[in-house]
Deep mutational scan, measured.
Amino acid sequence: ENVVSAPMPGKVLRVLVRVGDRVRVGQGLLVLEAMKMENEIPSPRDGVVKRILVKEGEIDDTGQPLIELG
């Protein structure tokens, strides 16, 4: 899985990584606010952040691509 998608609709509060960062499975990639709760979205695998497809403050839909890993 190279693309991390939104598991729920919500607002992107914080992006915790930058392009080029090495990430490990379970590491937080970004924080979504949904139903007044903050949810940290973890990396599904080890890899390198290739692209960040959303910006802080954006509203996303379920299934929307958020981050691409390489």
Rank of each mutant, 00 (worst) to 15 (best):
G26F: 05
E38R: 10
G10F: 11
M8E: 05
R14P: 02
G26D: 03
P7Y: 06
Q27K: 04
V4M: 04
E1L: 14
I52D: 02
D21E: 13
E58H: 10
R51S: 10
S5I: 14
L13R: 05
V49L: 02
L32Y: 15
G70D: 14
I41D: 01
L53Y: 13
E56A: 11
G70C: 15
G10Y: 08
M35K: 11
P65A: 11
P65N: 06
R18Q: 12
A6R: 05
V54T: 10
D61H: 14
G57K: 04
G47N: 01
G57W: 06
V54G: 03
D46H: 08
V54P: 01
V25W: 08
R18I: 08
N39R: 14
R24G: 07
L69I: 12
P65G: 09
I67T: 02
N39V: 15
G28Y: 08
E58V: 11
M8V: 08
G70L: 13
G28M: 11
V3G: 05
S5W: 14
N2R: 09
Q27F: 06
R24D: 05
Q64Y: 10
G10V: 06
E58L: 10
K50H: 10
V48W: 14
G26C: 06
V17W: 00
V23C: 04
M37E: 11
E58I: 11
M35C: 13
Q64W: 12
Q64C: 11
G63A: 07
R24F: 11
V3H: 08
G20I: 03
G10S: 06
V3T: 11
V19I: 10
G20W: 05
I59A: 08
A34G: 10
D46P: 07
R24K: 13
I41R: 01
E40V: 15
L32P: 00
R18V: 10
D60G: 15
M8T: 08
V49T: 00
L29S: 00
M37W: 07
R22H: 13
P65K: 06
D46F: 07
A34S: 13
P44L: 05
I41Y: 03
V19F: 04
L30E: 00
Q27V: 05
K50W: 11
E1K: 13
G47E: 02
L66H: 02
K55S: 12
G10P: 02
R51P: 03
N39C: 15
D61Q: 14
M37L: 11
E56Q: 10
V12W: 00
E68T: 09
L69C: 05
I41G: 01
M35S: 11
L69H: 01
Q27S: 05
M8C: 12
R22V: 12
V31M: 05
L66F: 05
R22G: 06
L29C: 07
L32W: 11
G28S: 12
S5E: 08
L29D: 01
D21K: 03
V54A: 10
R22P: 09
I52Q: 02
G28Q: 06
D46W: 07
R22D: 08
L16N: 04
V49N: 00
V54I: 10
E38W: 10
S43I: 02
D61N: 12
Q27R: 03
P7N: 08
G47H: 02
P9K: 13
E58K: 09
E68L: 14
G28H: 08
V49M: 00
G57F: 06
V23I: 08
L32R: 01
R22W: 14
G63R: 08
V3K: 06
V15T: 03
G20K: 04
V15G: 00
V19S: 03
E40C: 15
V3Q: 07
V4C: 06
V54N: 01
K55N: 10
V15D: 02
L69W: 04
P7V: 07
P65T: 07
M35N: 15
E33H: 08
P65H: 08
A34R: 09
V23L: 03
L13W: 03
I59C: 13
T62F: 13
K50L: 14
R51H: 09
R51L: 09
D60R: 15
D61P: 08
D46T: 07
A34D: 08
E40W: 12
G57N: 07
L66W: 06
L16R: 02
I41P: 02
V19R: 06
N2F: 15
V19Q: 07
M37C: 11
G70N: 11
R45I: 15
R45T: 10
I59K: 07
G63D: 09
S43Y: 03
R18F: 08
Q27Y: 04
V19L: 07
G57C: 09
E56R: 08
E1D: 13
V23W: 04
L29A: 00
R14D: 03
V12A: 00
S5R: 15
M8S: 10
L53C: 11
V54D: 01
Q27G: 03
N2Q: 10
D61E: 13
M37S: 10
V25N: 07
R22A: 10
M35E: 13
P44D: 06
V49E: 01
A6C: 11
M35L: 11
E40I: 15
E33C: 15
L29V: 06
T62N: 06
L32D: 00
L53A: 03
V15H: 02
E68Y: 11
I41M: 04
V23F: 03
M8W: 15
A6E: 03
E1S: 13
T62E: 13
R45W: 14
T62D: 07
L13S: 05
K55D: 09
E1Y: 14
K36C: 15
N39G: 05
L30H: 00
E33Y: 15
I41T: 02
P44S: 05
K36Y: 12
E68W: 11
V31L: 08
I67K: 02
I67L: 10
S5F: 15
G20F: 05
E68A: 07
P42H: 10
V23N: 01
R45Y: 13
E56M: 09
A34I: 14
M37G: 12
M37Y: 08
N2H: 13
V12K: 00
D46M: 06
P42F: 12
S43D: 00
V31R: 03
R51E: 07
D46A: 10
L16K: 04
V12N: 00
G26Y: 06
E58S: 10
D46L: 04
E40L: 15
K50Q: 09
V23G: 02
Q27W: 05
N39Q: 14
V15C: 07
V19P: 08
S43V: 01
G70E: 15
K50N: 08
V25R: 14
N39M: 15
I59N: 09
A6W: 08
D61M: 13
R18M: 11
G20M: 05
A6N: 06
R24T: 12
G10K: 03
K36D: 15
P9Q: 11
V23T: 02
K36G: 15
E40D: 06
R22I: 13
R18S: 12
V3E: 05
G10R: 04
L69M: 06
G63V: 05
R14V: 07
V48Q: 07
L69E: 01
L16A: 01
K36S: 14
L32F: 15
R14E: 05
E58N: 10
K55R: 12
A34M: 13
E33G: 09
N39K: 14
D21S: 06
L32K: 01
E1R: 13
I41N: 02
L30R: 00
L30Q: 00
P7M: 08
K55C: 12
K36F: 13
L69Q: 02
L66C: 04
V23Q: 01
D21L: 06
